[in-house]
Computed example of a mutant assay.
Amino acid sequence: MRLSVIIKTLNEQANIERAIRSALDAVAAVGSGEVIVADSKSTDRTCEIAAQFPVRIVQLSHAEDRCCGVGAQLGYAVAQGEYLYILDGDMTFEPGFVEAAIAALEQDSGLAGVGGQVREMNLDNEEFVNRAQRRLAHFEPGQVDRLDMGGLYRRSALAQVGYFTNQNLHAYEEFELAARLASAGWRLRRLDHPGICHYGHTETSYRLLAKRWTSRYAWGCGELLRQSLGKPHLSFVLTRLHVYRLYFAVLVWCFAAATFVLLAAVNGTPLLALAGLGMLALPVLLMSLRRKSLARGLYAVSAWGVFSAGLLAGLLAKPRREPTDSVRCVSLK
């Protein structure tokens, strides 16, 4: 079989039909393949809608296993394609991308995966506005160190590194995959070709930020670090994921500010308290000036705080399962 498209879903009833139709078109364009809906125990009509199409549906058996890293691994367990694509339920393929990606993999035997250009369709949320404006290096055409937002992977490369995505990770699952592939000598590439449209979350910025914490998405960088300890790809993780420097700096800064406030309370020194509060306010001021907006500056610093706390929480969290363990699931179709 040529292609397996794995669509990760959790309560995607508003998007799933669009994603499936896009995936079926991609399979038809390359001649043979399958579409697998890997569902994280949705509580809406996602699976009911998906069942109306010629797709395979597998679903987690236990809701507590939900995380970003489990979806691709769930689909990988039943996939048969020579090439595999991770597609989120709120994404669609751009015409011609899968054919171009397969051609690139066939022309270069050292490539493990290929991505395309990402078009953000929802720019009402601060997170997605920032993502669209920053133009990070790994979203530029050429050789990249990760394929965030999905990619087409060579099955033989995935088999060599043991598993598709780590089912303990609530985020950074594609980065962890990239780290393992790089350690095994494989390369990744992003084409200068439209790849996918991402419709994203429709929540307000702060509601989404709260969701990032309650879903443990914010814990992902800490979980990644813990899962990488003692592994050959640890140096790749520490040197390539630059948010660690930011989040550790935020933690040190907050600790120093809290120390000033605590000393002020113990010694009755108002100046120390003002110094501590000033330290907390300074990043907001600087980011507001940089982004020319108090609201955007405040949101940026709030996000730093949430994800820095998540770094600690994820680092301390005990992994639930071994990455190579079978995913607990049932087949619905």
Rank of each mutant, 00 (worst) to 15 (best):
V306R: 09
T259L: 14
R240Y: 02
Q167H: 09
L315F: 13
Q80H: 13
R45I: 02
E176Q: 12
R56P: 00
Y153V: 06
S326I: 07
R45Y: 01
Y247N: 12
Q117S: 00
G314L: 06
F248T: 14
A103V: 08
A100Y: 04
G162A: 10
E203H: 12
L136Q: 11
S32Q: 14
F128A: 06
E126V: 13
Q160P: 01
V327R: 03
L209C: 03
G115W: 08
T204E: 15
C67M: 00
D124Q: 15
R155L: 04
G31L: 08
S293V: 11
Q73R: 13
L311W: 03
V237N: 02
G110V: 06
L238W: 04
V144A: 06
S156W: 00
Q80R: 15
L298I: 12
H170Y: 12
D90W: 04
L241R: 01
L3W: 02
V330W: 00
L246W: 05
A50K: 04
F139N: 10
R190H: 06
R226H: 13
A79F: 05
E17M: 03
V55P: 03
E203Q: 15
E173S: 13
N168M: 06
R155S: 11
G115S: 09
G268E: 14
E99V: 15
T43M: 10
W186N: 12
F93I: 06
T92C: 03
L315M: 10
G115D: 13
A303M: 11
N125R: 14
E82H: 10
R291W: 08
G96N: 11
I16C: 07
Q227R: 14
G113L: 10
P323F: 07
M121V: 11
G220A: 05
N11P: 02
L87I: 06
L298S: 09
G71A: 14
A77Q: 15
V129I: 15
N166P: 04
A303Q: 15
Q227S: 13
L280E: 13
G150C: 10
L105K: 08
A29Q: 13
G33E: 06
G151L: 09
A178D: 07
T46A: 05
I57Y: 09
L286I: 14
L272R: 10
A300W: 10
H242D: 01
D25A: 13
L251F: 02
D65N: 02
G305C: 10
R189G: 00
R56I: 08
V261E: 15
F260G: 00
L294E: 12
L286H: 08
T92H: 04
T46D: 07
T204I: 01
R146D: 08
Y199C: 00
G69Q: 04
Q52C: 00
C68R: 01
I20D: 07
G314A: 05
G185N: 09
V30M: 05
T239Q: 13
P283C: 10
T9K: 06
Y83F: 14
A264W: 10
T259V: 11
W219F: 11
V144I: 07
H170T: 14
R240D: 05
I102K: 12
A273G: 15
L312K: 05
L280Q: 11
A19R: 02
S215F: 01
G142A: 01
Y244P: 03
L60N: 03
S183V: 09
A218M: 07
D39Y: 03
L123H: 13
S215G: 03
F255M: 12
A157D: 09
Q167S: 08
V129S: 03
E48D: 15
T202S: 11
S293M: 09
L332N: 04
I36H: 04
R18I: 01
F307H: 14
